[in-house]
């Protein structure tokens, strides 16, 4: 499923990186410790986190994740949005928790 389709189905807000909306999402990873995320996530994962800063984007770019979903109403910093545009990594937000989103994502992936 593409990032764009998931964004619509789950009613997510896109804050940046729209160029990457056509990328495929093949899995989900949830985590806030960047080293663990790097070690355990897989290419193609949608990353659910509360880390709304530029270093999160750098990690997503390094491991080829198509999109980051900031949960619980966390908003990205301006630098993160700018970097998302540069890297074409979609930056999504929701007020729901990671658990609620994981349950919802399970129906689609």
């Amino acid at each position: 499923m593409t990032v764009e389709e998931l964004t619509k189905q789950l009613n997510l807000t896109c804050m940046g990186g729209k160029k990457g909306l056509g990328k495929e999402v093949t899995g989900v990873y949830i985590g806030d410790l960047l080293s663990l995320v790097m070690a355990r996530s897989k290419e193609g994962d949608l990353w659910l986190t509360v880390q709304g800063h530029i270093n999160t984007l750098a990690v997503a770019a390094l491991v080829n994740m198509p999109a980051i979903l900031l949960v619980e109403g966390i908003l990205p910093t301006d630098e993160m949005i700018q970097k998302a545009e540069e890297e074409a990594i979609v930056l999504l937000t929701t007020h729901k928790t990671a658990y609620e989103m994981a349950c919802a994502l399970n129906k689609w992936l």
Binding site: L34, S35, L36, N55
Partner: peptide, 15 residues
Amino acid sequence: ELGFGAGMGLPNMKR
């Protein structure tokens, strides 16, 4: 608080 300091840096470098 930024998500660093998990104590995985050197282990990841080795792995």
